[in-house]
């Protein structure tokens, strides 16, 4: 126990570790909040698609600049992510292909291009290319101070935007036709939300990687839904789950050598999800079972009362009921 505490205080005192933990927590907070809207708009798989489409953007940014710079990579990733989302939108609007198929096509073809470019870069013999493949699975522990600050800053902006536009995003998610009828510029709002979503995905790629980053967006949101029937509380809880996941990821990976921070964060989020599925106060399995049992008990009580009142008039029927 003492060792645990020491390791935890090391997390708070070691400046590098502290930054990484703080960055992961803020990333979890903002991803969790934005993820709620994506989940409620049935765009859960969008995060995965955007993350995969971002890879060629990172590679192109490297090929064009020839340097390894996180802000440039993020720009490339955001650009590719937006191109990917637009591609999905155009495919679904102009053809009869459904969104799930469109996402599948865009995800795999963009990711294919990304892997081809990545392989080319790795075989080009350029010394500075090493580390680009880290974007596949992420490497939060190796992030330098300025990278973490960038990620944290972006996360704070995202969380603030979600808070500021809460009312608008809520209406957009629940009833876009009504929102438009009430005079809200629905396509602008939709674009803003998508852009925030792309930014959240890209902010997480460095830490968690292309393959797993979607988990940070969706898992906390789905978990939070088990505990509440209010959107505001759902956002707060989802953000909290995301923060706890980030903290656990940073902490556990700092204790066990060779454990990657991002994937451990994702596992922590998955563990919170399991707890929510079982114990969630609104929709958890345990709650559902208890509610059912209570309903059955009342039904039996009711039947027993009916039987006993019937026995007042006929004693033989009471024996059968008993």
């Amino acid at each position: 126990m003492n060792g645990l505490w020491n390791s935890f205080s090391a997390l708070a005192s070691d400046p590098n570790l502290r930054w990484i933990a703080l960055g992961c927590m803020l990333l979890g907070l903002s991803s969790g909040m934005i993820g709620c809207f994506a989940y409620l708009r049935r765009q859960s798989l969008m995060g995965d698609t955007i993350a995969h489409t971002a890879l060629p953007g990172i590679c192109v940014a490297f090929l064009l600049s020839g340097t390894k710079s996180l802000p440039l990579f993020m720009l490339g990733a955001v650009a590719a992510g937006i191109v990917g989302t637009l591609a999905i939108r155009i495919i679904t609007a102009r053809s009869r292909i459904k969104p799930d198929a469109a996402m599948g096509i865009v995800l795999s073809s963009f990711f294919g291009v990304g892997i081809v470019l990545l392989t080319m870069i790795q075989h080009s013999g350029d010394g500075s290319q090493s580390g680009l493949d880290k974007f596949l699975f992420g490497q939060a522990a190796s992030m330098i101070g300025s990278d973490v600050q960038l990620m944290a800053g972006v996360s704070v902006v995202l969380a603030a935007a979600c808070t500021l536009l809460f009312k608008e995003f809520k209406l957009l998610s629940f009833d876009p036709a009504f929102a438009k009828g009430a005079g809200f510029p629905v396509s602008v709002l939709d674009f803003i939300l998508q852009a925030l979503f792309v930014t959240a995905v890209v902010a997480g790629i460095q830490a968690v990687g292309v393959v797993l980053v979607a988990a940070l967006l969706i898992t906390p949101a789905v978990s939070a839904r088990f505990w509440t029937e209010r959107l505001g509380r759902m956002l707060a809880l989802s953000g909290l789950f995301g923060m706890v996941s980030g903290l656990l990821g940073a902490w556990i990976s700092s204790q066990v050598s060779q454990l990657p921070t991002g994937p451990v964060s994702v596992l922590a989020a998955a563990a919170l999800f399991l707890v929510s599925v079982v114990f969630g106060t609104k929709r958890g399995l345990l709650t559902a079972r208890l509610t059912r049992r209570e309903a059955r008990r009342r039904l039996l009580l009711h039947a027993a009362e009916a039987a006993s009142s019937a026995s007042a008039s006929s004693s033989t029927s009471a024996k059968e009921a008993g």
């Binding site: 009833d175 839904r225 759902m234």
Partner: peptide, 12 residues
């Protein structure tokens, strides 16, 4: 709007 046009499972 038509009642079916929204998801009534929305948390609200």
């Amino acid at each position: 709007p038509q009642r079916e046009s929204v998801d009534w499972d929305f948390p609200t």
